[in-house]
Nucleic acid binder design. Structure first.
Length: 417
RNA sequence: CGGGGCAUAGUGUAACGGUAACAUUUACGAUUCGGGUUCGUAAGACUCAGGGUUCGAAUCCCUGUGCCCCGACCA
């Protein structure tokens, strides 16, 4: 893409109405636009990141057998009354509104009720199980206090996966697969090293649920980590029993703050009993379907990456989720041979399928450099009179301090992977 | 929902109760051409909304709204 086609502008100064690092940087870099507290629009660069995170998740969830669908945001109160969760006392983040024709409707905060109800039409036999479905869908939560930029919004995109099983063993099996998928997802999003599977409270059906927690001072959760074993325990279940279950001593744990970037939960038969989601087993007996649910907030993942990987110059995106792979900066005047070369390089990279943002504007070098740093794509290439006359091109990794001079052939080679 | 803070050009900040200023931004003209270059000219504000006090309010008081932070909450 040509920089001049990308309408978004960068700012020198932090927005006054944001405190969190992720929001400051993402707004300054023109990735997002704030509408209200906890409500953000995604501009082209931010959308690209979000889409890439979505692609990664889709790929990994497909790999464990998830099948994508899309449910509505509008929720039928009758369904929620069956599980007791229509009540604001039970679920306090509802957005509810009146229908003009009469009656009430809610905006979805999560979709257990809806998905279980849909599956009543499609699950009738043990032969239909196990199976799992997921969606990327906008959730609405009327948070008493939105905060931390895009990490705790009132409207946000979430991947929610639900699995359906004949028995607990089958659920356990899928649950483990989900763990594997989640690990790969965070790894690919660049959060692998800092993200810990964390034991959390499990509800009535299972002793524990699991959260994926990324270590960060910006986090809202307090967890206790064991770095060597790469696991952690949420504050809420830190007790002798848990320590015993995990074979960990209290002294081996370190208290840190973390951001919950995902969670997986065994629901058991809680929803299937309430909503009458049953199947017939081999013996002709009706049994409730055993369920699991697995969520990831995409905006929160994006915000977390902005929080933990950025530096004083700006954002730093891991390869797989960067909006562009490379900033191509031309410092030569339009019409010069060097400028023509830059155009050719842009053309060639595009043909190669390399995502490149070509800054061809007639502005100062410093401005282009500063902006490239703020954007935080993995690479920055510079073409100038200097590099042109040397028959080379300058390449620098976002996190490297030194740039290197390469021949065009070597440069293209490097861009291939 | 309890507590605290803030609200002034597009953005970020000034202004004792007395003519709303500076930087940035934008436009134009020079200058420069490898780190937000430099200089000039111009544009840009009913000071969040509503009420009150006062000769006079961005400034003081009340109400509301919005935003930020701490806490609570987080299915």
């Amino acid at each position: 893409m040509l920089r001049s086609q990308l309408f978004s502008k960068t700012r020198r100064e932090d927005p006054k109405d944001e405190q969190s690092k992720n929001a400051k940087l993402l707004i300054r870099a023109g990735f997002i636009h704030k509408e209200l507290a906890g409500v953000y629009s995604y501009l082209p660069l931010g959308l690209r990141v979000l889409k890439k995170i979505e692609d990664i998740i889709r790929e990994e969830i497909n790999n464990i057998g998830g099948v994508e669908l899309s449910m509505t945001a509008f929720q039928n109160p009758e369904l929620w009354k069956k599980t007791g969760r229509w009540d604001d006392e039970v679920l306090d983040v509802w957005f509810k509104t009146e229908l003009k024709a009469g009656g009430e409707i809610g905006l979805g905060t999560t979709h257990e009720e809806m998905v279980a109800n849909i599956m009543r039409d499609h699950i009738s036999s043990y032969k239909d199980l196990p199976m799992s479905v997921y969606q990327f869908q906008t959730k609405f939560r009327n948070e008493l206090r939105a905060k931390s930029g895009i990490m705790r919004g009132r409207e946000f995109l979430m991947k929610d996966l639900y699995s359906f099983h004949a028995d607990e063993e089958s659920l356990d099996d899928f649950y483990d697969k989900a763990k594997g998928a989640y690990e790969r997802i965070y790894e690919r999003c660049g959060l692998g090293d800092l993200t810990y599977i964390t034991f959390s409270s499990g509800g009535t059906f299972s002793k524990y649920s699991h959260e994926y927690q990324t270590l960060s001072e910006a986090g809202e959760d307090k967890i206790f980590v064991n770095v060597e074993k790469k696991i952690a325990i949420n504050e809420e279940v830190l007790n002798d029993e848990t320590l015993n279950d995990l074979g960990i001593k209290r002294e081996e744990l370190e208290e840190v703050k973390a951001i919950e970037v995902g969670n997986i939960f065994k629901l058991g038969t809680k929803f299937s009993l309430a909503l009458d989601l049953v199947y017939t087993d081999e013996n002709g007996e009706k049994k409730p379907v055993v369920m699991g649910c697995y969520g990831i907030g995409l905006g929160r993942v994006m915000g977390t990456v902005a929080e933990v990987l950025s530096d004083e110059k700006g954002l730093v995106w891991p390869k797989e989720i960067a909006p562009f792979k490379i900033s191509l900066i031309c410092l030569a005047k339009a019409g010069t041979e060097a400028y023509k070369q830059a155009e050719e390089v842009y053309q060639k990279l595009t043909e190669m399928g390399v995502e490149v943002l070509f800054d061809e504007r007639d502005i100062s070098a410093g401005e282009k450099m500063a902006e490239a740093d703020l954007f935080g794509f993995p690479y920055r290439a510079v073409i100038s009179e200097k590099t042109f006359s040397a028959g080379q091109i300058e390449l620098k990794g976002r996190q490297n301090t030194e740039a290197e001079m390469l021949s065009l052939a070597d440069f293209y080679e490097r861009m291939k992977n």
